[in-house]
Design a protein around this nucleic acid. Structure first.
Length: 420
DNA sequence: TCTGGGGTCCTAGGACCC
DNA sequence: TCTGGGGTCCTAGGACCC
């Protein structure tokens, strides 16, 4: 059996762990730059606040109902996520961390006498140890476990668990399960399937196999098989290395000045370097992009990217920043108000297998040694403690985060305060 | 005034090979 | 009027996930 453990309203719940007086009150968490709603407590959902809504469009709901608003605090959520995942490791031989707030558990080889009891024990323990409420769905395939998890959340049973163990339960669960809630059915497929008269998960499982493959590709076919109880997706306890890495941000304010954009882009390149080194990869190709604010139809628009082939694959921040700056120089045009820029690195390869270039003069060993020290310092004392001059000091481009909570669990000062 | 930031996989079609 | 039969690799675009 597979279990899917999914934290309830994760970001909002993280904030509440350290502000227990907010229990029972509507809480929302915003995206970067305090732009959109990306997490809601149950009370906020009941007020009809939609997921993804730009916050300025629902300002009146927020004020009228005294909704508590937080900027996103990924240092906090990342650390809380880690605690939840560590706790889940104790309950199954194989655990796959699927996202910041979700994990698949594979109960392979376990003699589970009473699944309900065991699932309830998991949710209870995670809540007790971390403060985070959890729902868990258990079934014979990952896709069915996803369905079960949805039903666990919907039914609001105290244990937070829902189990699809036999054929009758499977049919019962799928009978009223809306097609667009299935894992793997997005907006386009939902529209297509509804047009074809397929409205529930059960309808879908009764479709002709070839028809499914023809119209929804092999992805759809796997979905169909999994919903019919035949596992296609295995558990992946060890995460694969990334094949592309992207660092991009919208700026807190629109930027016109070249120097300022260059500082931002250099910082994104440095961040890509750190991510590459973390998974022991080098990048062979870099893409730099830049664009104006597409929502401001009253302003002139500009959107451009450039692809740079690196002469020798690298993960050195010094080199990556150099190429990022060159790329930016090639695409930057004066006279526009820029809103967002980013770096995407690809053609990733293991850093142990770099094909060098006879005519390239960079001393890679020297760079590697330097990066090792740089990472060590920044991991210990905080991001960008040591950085390239190109990344700047002005911070005129940084995020807007007006409702940021303290990093309760990761900031040195906070931890000391709590202990005292 | 204010609109997020990451990723993956699959397919069709074109260019090229023999 | 008639125009072979295999392949591979690459890319853009479209779908999906959190």
């Amino acid at each position: 059996m597979f279990g899917l453990a999914d934290c309830n309203n994760f970001y909002a719940s993280c904030e509440r762990v350290f502000r227990p007086e907010l229990n029972g009150r509507p809480v929302v968490v915003l995206s970067n730059n305090d732009g959109c709603i990306i997490a809601r407590s149950n009370e906020a959902k009941e007020l009809g606040i939609p997921m993804g809504a730009p916050v300025f469009k629902i300002r009146d709901i927020i004020e009228k109902n005294n909704v508590v608003v937080f900027s996103s605090n990924y240092a906090l959520y990342g650390d809380m996520s880690h605690r939840v995942m560590m706790c889940l490791q104790n309950f199954a031989p194989e655990v796959e961390v699927y996202s910041i707030d979700e994990a698949f558990l594979h109960f392979e080889g376990m003699q589970l006498i009473d699944l309900h009891e065991y699932a309830a024990k998991i949710t209870h323990t995670v809540k007790r140890n971390t403060g985070i409420p959890l729902s868990i769905g258990i079934a014979h395939t990952k896709t069915l476990a996803k369905v079960a998890n949805h039903l666990a959340k919907k039914s609001k049973v105290k244990s937070g668990a829902f189990i699809i163990a036999d054929e009758q339960q499977r049919i019962e669960a799928l009978k009223n399960f809306e097609i667009d809630k299935i894992w793997g059915v997005g907006r386009q497929y939902a529209k297509f399937l509804k047009n074809a008269g397929i409205n529930t998960a059960l309808d879908f499982t009764k479709c002709n196999r070839n028809w499914v493959k023809k119209n929804l590709t092999v992805m759809g076919l796997r979905m169909w098989e999994e919903l019919n109880g035949m596992p296609c997706h295995e558990i992946e306890p060890v995460p694969e290395n990334k094949k592309t890495i992207c660092t991009s941000r919208s700026f807190g304010n629109m930027l016109e000045n070249y120097q300022t954009v260059e500082e931002a882009v250099s910082t994104y390149a440095a961040r890509c370097g750190a991510k590459l080194r973390k998974q022991k990869s080098t990048a062979g190709v870099m893409l730099v992009f830049l664009h104006t604010n597409r929502f401001r139809e009253d302003l002139p628009q500009y959107c451009k990217n450039i692809v740079i082939e690196l002469p020798v694959p690298t993960n050195s921040t010094i080199e990556l920043v150099k190429y990022a700056k060159a790329g930016l120089k090639a695409i930057f045009k004066n006279g526009f108000k820029y809103k967002k820029a980013g770096i995407i690195v690809s053609e990733l390869a293991p850093q142990t297998a770099v094909q060098t270039n006879l005519f390239y003069e960079v001393d890679h060993q020297k760079h590697n040694n330097l990066m090792l020290v740089l990472d060590k310092l920044n991991n210990t004392y905080g991001r960008d403690t040591v950085r390239l001059g190109a990344q700047g000091y002005s911070k005129r481009w940084t995020l807007r985060q007006e409702q940021l909570s303290p990093c309760y669990t990761t900031s040195f000062e906070n931890i000391m305060t709590v202990k005292c």
